[in-house]
């Protein structure tokens, strides 16, 4: 474990807590894409298949349980909770995420570390995580006023993978054999997708104006 990875995990945890806080306290999911939340639940479900078979550390297991539990409960809130579901703008959140899942699955069947079920699922979860934010970014472009919690949620979600890139660089130089192209390329693509969001988020923070993405 290095400081970059710990910072990344904590940032990721904070993004999930910010979202749960928003949904649980003000019972609203306005501006949040259910499609992205469903994709994240699928990412964690396919990435943590080995949660009960391969024990890495208490920290690792606890964090996996938190990410699994939070992502599925957020999907449940947005689909089932009578108050929360009312604030979900179904008309705007129309990204057909099936067109993200299928290419990632096909790519995982071709590009993986080993052609086994677990390895293909693991590669799939990495490719899917890289593009899972797209429905959310599209929704942000459509909804005019982005509330602070939603902006912070997306920012933290992007920042966590940026920290991970530093973690991979650090591990590459400190650990022999640490070469994992699938993880690195997926993580880089994922972070680049946030680039324009970061740009507008930073400007809105610098000029102290409401975050507003150009249509």
């Amino acid at each position: 474990m290095n400081i970059f990875r710990l910072a990344g995990d904590m940032t990721h945890l904070m993004s999930v807590l910010v979202l749960l806080l928003k949904i649980h306290t003000i019972k609203s999911c306005a501006g949040i894409s259910l499609k992205t939340q469903e994709l994240y639940a699928l990412v964690f479900a396919t990435r943590y298949l080995d949660i009960f078979t391969d024990f890495i550390s208490v920290y690792n297991t606890i964090m996996k349980l938190i990410f699994l539990g939070s992502s599925f409960s957020i999907v449940w809130y947005m689909r089932r909770h009578k108050l929360v579901r009312r604030s979900y703008d179904k008309e705007q959140d129309t990204f057909r995420h099936f067109f993200l899942v299928l290419p990632c699955l096909l790519l995982a069947l071709v590009m993986n570390e080993k052609f086994t079920f677990k390895e293909v699922m693991w590669a799939f979860s990495l490719y899917l995580e890289a593009v899972a934010i797209l429905p959310q970014l599209v929704l942000l472009q459509r909804t005019k006023n982005i509330d602070n919690l939603t902006g912070q949620y997306v920012f933290l979600l992007g920042a966590y993978r940026a920290f991970y890139i530093f973690n991979w660089i650090y591990r590459y130089f400190t650990e022999p054999h640490y070469v994992h192209w699938i993880t690195w390329i997926s993580g880089l693509v994922q972070t680049l997708l946030y680039a324009d969001f970061f740009y507008y988020y930073f400007n809105s923070w610098k000029n102290n104006v409401k975050l507003h993405l150009p249509a």
Partner: peptide, 10 residues
């Protein structure tokens, strides 16, 4: 053979 990739990251 490269040491098998233990998935120790989240």
């Amino acid at each position: 053979e490269e040491c098998f990739h233990v998935k120790d990251e989240l």
